[in-house]
Every structure is written in structure tokens, then in C-alpha cells.
Design a protein around this nucleic acid. Structure first.
Lengths: 131, 131
DNA sequence: CTTGAACCTGACATCGGTGTCAGGTTCTAC
DNA sequence: GTAGAACCTGACACCGATGTCAGGTTCAAG
């Protein structure tokens, strides 16, 4: 498939796909004319790249772990070195902290939302709105 | 207390504290000479600001919900309008998705780490390392 | 009064993924 | 062969919290 279709199927912009390639995260064959051509497995790969980006990993980090992933896309499947595993553990901790932070923030939002809902209910019931 | 101490006690840089003030998230009294002076409650407030930043909210969003928070720091404690509550719900969903993404990424990392650990164990035991 | 730490304002830099525009080429279908 | 969609490369802009530097002022302690 070509880049437009890949973009559509993954929900990632064409621009980003080109960027991933530039970062060495994604490869493509080229048509004689120079257009990018992707196999089916590219879809999974792009999605995985997105998940990792969403976790706050940068291109370099993603580049280092992609080859180690159980790849249904048939990559070389190297294994992580002890050194890399160390980095990943640090990354994992960072993610843990981030999840905790997010859950905390969610609680905060819920409090505010709950308070607003009460206000709204009061207004609905015809009571004087708090001000 | 002055800005240096507040920075130390909250773990936030002096630069950031000035930025928060510029964004209207934090207020300070000034000494006759112009130095910022904070009360005890500033500590909690800064920490809450940080939590919200960590959740990916921007200054504007934080500015809008801070006054609605159950404030032990004695702010005016307005209540959220229906409009704001709507935004917050959207924000909440974004956070939910982000948490899900992070957990997914964590799983991915764990797989890679686990594979690396197996390799290491094999090396330790004197077997030929996989290559 | 002096000295050094802490503070002030203002400006500029950074990071990295993504948007967008320009100007040109390729592909597909008629 | 031709039109129009899709693609190519390259370059620049952005966001937004934070780092950092410069040049100057204030504070607290001796």
C-alpha cells in the first residue's frame, strides 16, 4: 500500500510517517518513480510506534526497543542487552510515576466536575444559583 | 518565605515559579524592594499546579480549574460552570486514554525486559549467549 | 559600609513531533 | 496524451514549559 492508505489505516498523518522513516523507525520499498510502498505489517508497526510515542518515549528510545519486540512483522527480533534492559527499567519507572500522576489528576478533575454537577442540579430545580 | 525556599520545598525551579506567576496561577506579595514573598499555602498550591501540568493540562486549563478546587489555601472557591464542566469531562477522557496508552506501553516494555533477563540468566549460567 | 548570596527583569534557546507551504514529479484512469 | 489525485523533498513555524545568561538591585550578616 502507499503512504496515504497507511496514514488512513493507522490514523497517523502522512507527515509523521515520513518522519518515522527519517528516524529509522519505519522502512519502505520504493516504486521505480520513488513513491513509498508498504507491506501489511507496516500497519502494526506504526501503531506500536504510536503507542510508544504516546508513552513519552522519544525516537531514539523507540528505535532501540523496536527490534527487540515480539514482532509479528517479522523483523530480526534481536534481544535486549543488559544495558538496554537497565534503561528500560528506568523508563518503566518513569511511566509508573506518570500513571500515578494522571490518576491523581483525574481525581482532582472528578471533584471539580462533581461540584459543578451539584450546581447544575440546583439551577435545574429552580433554586437560586450559587454565585 | 521567599522564592528560593519555595522552590526547594516544592522541587520546582525558581524559573518555573516565576512563570506560574506570569500565567496568573500563583500570586505573591512583594517586599519593599520587590522580592517575592509567599505564605505557607503557596506550597500546596504549587504542588497542585505541578500535578495538573503532569497530567498534560496547559496553563489556561489549570487557570480555569484552580479556583474551583477545594482549596485548603483559602482561595475564593468558585464553582465550575456547566461550560467548564463540559471541558473537564473532555479532559478527563483524554487522561483516561493516556493512562490506557501508558499501561499498554508498560506491558510492551515488560516483555522486552523479561526477554533480556532470560538472556542474562543464560549467560550467567555459562551457556553461549544467543546472538 | 561592605560583601556575597539571593533576587529582580528581560531576552533568547531548546526540544521534538507535527502542521504546512512551495515547487516539482509520478501515478492512474480516461 | 492529458487531467487530477497522490506523492516527492526541503524548509520553515509552532507549541509551551523550562534552562540559561546578562546586567542590575536587594537583603542580611559581619
Amino acid at each position: 500500500m502507499r503512504i496515504g492508505e497507511l496514514a488512513r489505516r493507522t490514523g497517523v498523518s502522512v507527515r509523521s510517517l515520513r518522519y518515522y522513516e527519517q528516524q529509522g523507525l519505519l522502512v519502505s520499498d520504493r516504486t521505480p518513480g520513488g513513491h513509498r510502498e508498504y507491506g501489511e505489517r507496516a500497519v502494526d508497526r506504526v501503531i506500536r510506534i504510536q503507542v510508544l510515542y504516546a508513552a513519552g518515549l522519544n525516537s531514539r528510545a523507540i528505535d532501540s526497543i523496536l527490534p527487540c519486540m515480539r514482532d509479528e512483522d517479522g523483523g530480526p527480533n534481536e534481544h535486549a542487552t543488559a544495558r538496554l534492559a537497565q534503561d528500560l527499567r528506568a523508563e518503566r519507572e518513569r511511566i509508573d510515576r506518570q500513571i500515578a500522576d494522571l490518576m491523581r489528576s483525574r481525581e482532582i478533575l472528578d471533584e471539580v466536575i462533581a461540584a459543578a454537577d451539584v450546581d447544575e442540579a440546583l439551577e435545574m430545580s429552580g433554586a437560586n444559583a450559587a454565585r
